[in-house]
């Protein structure tokens, strides 16, 4: 099975020429995502309708919308987590990451999920030490040299603003950390395998305000290196953390624009009604 990282540049370029729409060629950036006319269904029930969206690299994009609008479904499409559900399938359209359609048969899903990491609503550290949680992905990928793993663990824990809090107890169980620390440990775990994109599904919904603030600050720092897509029910969080916001309703993308524009003067009536709390 071919992983994305192994595809030679010339083949990648050819795929880009074959797959991209005619018109001015956009510069393809590391971590850039393009969703094109996507339909998605669980069995016979269609949950995404004709979604088209370009997610900018090294920026934070928030997905907002009422429960059941399809935002988490779309998020999970970006690293093919929905493949784990029997009846779930894309029925139309495509998702390209750095110009390559991620749903073609020759894409290595495992490698895709390395490159497109995910942090879930409820933090899910492994029943292992802090060190082993972060090292896990590297070991699975075949890294055995202790010094390399040590270096990667420290780098990831520093990147997730957790190092200073845990450096003296790396071999303590991850379960011994607070909720906010566990979430940052999960972020460190995702970062250890050097992704390009980090997906976050309501990462702060189970956290107290201080822990939330720490994770939001972390998101602000991470976007300098990673593309971040965050699903959130917290409108103020979307306003604080994100550069761009996409509003979904009943499986459709209603509006997508700069966050400041969406929250100050949205173009669509439905967006205004949702963000001002008139429905939802």
């Amino acid at each position: 099975m071919v992983s994305l990282a192994e595809i030679p540049e010339k083949i990648t370029s050819q795929m880009i020429v074959n797959q991209r729409q005619p018109g001015p060629e956009a510069e393809i950036e590391r971590g850039m995502i393009e969703i094109d006319q996507l339909d998605f269904a669980y069995g016979g029930h269609q949950v995404l309708h004709d979604v088209s969206l370009s997610i900018r690299a090294r920026a934070v994009t928030a997905f907002i919308g009422p429960s059941g609008c399809g935002k988490t479904t779309l998020l999970r499409c970006l690293n093919r987590m929905n493949d784990l559900i029997d009846s779930a399938r894309i029925t139309k359209g495509s998702i390209r990451i750095e110009g390559v359609d991620i749903n073609t048969p020759d894409v290595d899903v495992v490698d895709l999920r390395r490159r497109v990491g995910m942090v879930f609503q409820k933090s899910n550290p492994f029943p292992k030490s802090i060190y082993d949680n972060v090292a896990y992905g590297l070991r699975i990928a075949g890294v055995t040299k202790r010094s390399l793993i040590d270096e990667a663990v420290e780098k990831s824990l520093r990147s997730s603003a957790l190092w200073e809090e845990v450096k003296d107890r790396l071999h303590v169980s991850g379960y011994g950390l607070s909720g906010g620390q566990q979430q940052r440990l999960c972020i460190a775990r995702a970062l250890a395998v050097e992704p390009e994109i980090v997906l976050m599904d309501e990462p702060c919904s189970a956290l107290d305000p201080i822990a939330t603030a720490k994770v939001e600050e972390l998101i602000r720092q991470l976007k300098e290196q990673y593309t971040i897509v965050i699903v959130t029910h917290n409108m103020q969080q979307a306003g604080r953390c994100s550069d761009h916001t996409a509003f979904f309703y009943l499986g459709r993308l209603i509006e997508f624009d700069g966050t400041a524009k969406i929250f100050s003067n949205p173009a669509q009536r439905q967006t205004e009604e949702y963000i001002t709390g008139r429905f939802g």
Binding site: M235, Q236, G239, F263, S264, N265, P266, E272, I275, T276
Partner: peptide
């Protein structure tokens, strides 16, 4: 209430 959009204005 942390109003946004037209409410904030």
């Amino acid at each position: 209430f942390q109003p946004v959009a037209s409410d904030l204005r």
